[in-house]
């Protein structure tokens, strides 16, 4: 058993299923994602089958099941971004990176996540790469944005 997972679990009473979501949130905050092994550990601790925990965790957008990439891209699909055609942004980025929201590219460089609203509706549509916001973007801007990160890495 992973010691760091045990340390997180130890903060919660054993077998209390109502602690499931807080535990998963803590694990994700620490590791950046929920691994298979951690689901099994949590299941053992709370006496819940791993399949049920996975079912619950996939219900929520906030949980990831792959480690985040070096550049974690959050795409807003809140109301303002949606009416500003964020769906096209999402599709275009999926095409460029070859991954879908929740996934991480094979080289570990990029990962995608859909979020509801980042509170910058007047700048819609927007994406956030790690801590940097790219605002009022168009689908055709994405290639350059991604390239700038790849080149930044090479230099």
């Amino acid at each position: 058993m992973d010691e760091r997972t045990s340390a997180i679990l130890a903060k919660y009473p054993r077998g209390h299923r109502d602690c499931l979501i807080p535990i998963l949130q803590d694990i994700q905050e620490f590791f950046g994602y929920l691994s298979e092994a951690s689901l099994v550990e949590v299941g053992r601790y709370l006496d819940l089958p791993a399949g049920k925990i996975f079912g619950l965790a996939t219900f929520y957008n906030q949980f990831r099941f792959e480690p985040a990439g070096r550049y974690h891209i959050r795409l807003c699909h809140g109301t303002s971004c949606h009416v500003s055609e964020s769906a096209r942004i999402i599709r275009e980025l999926e095409k460029i990176l070859g991954i879908r929201p929740g996934q991480t590219s094979r080289d570990g460089m990029f990962s995608m996540e859909l979020v509801a609203c980042m509170g910058a509706c007047h700048l819609a549509p927007l994406i956030q790469v790690n801590e940097v916001h790219h605002t009022s973007i168009k689908p055709e801007d994405l290639k350059d944005i991604i390239d700038s990160y790849i080149h930044g890495e090479e230099e």
Partner: peptide, 20 residues
């Protein structure tokens, strides 16, 4: 045995096993 459960949400819901 708890093999199957609902995975994901809304119209992307499927039935699958642990970690799909």
């Amino acid at each position: 045995v708890f093999t199957l459960d609902f995975i994901n949400r809304g119209n992307s819901t499927i039935i699958g096993t642990a970690c799909n």
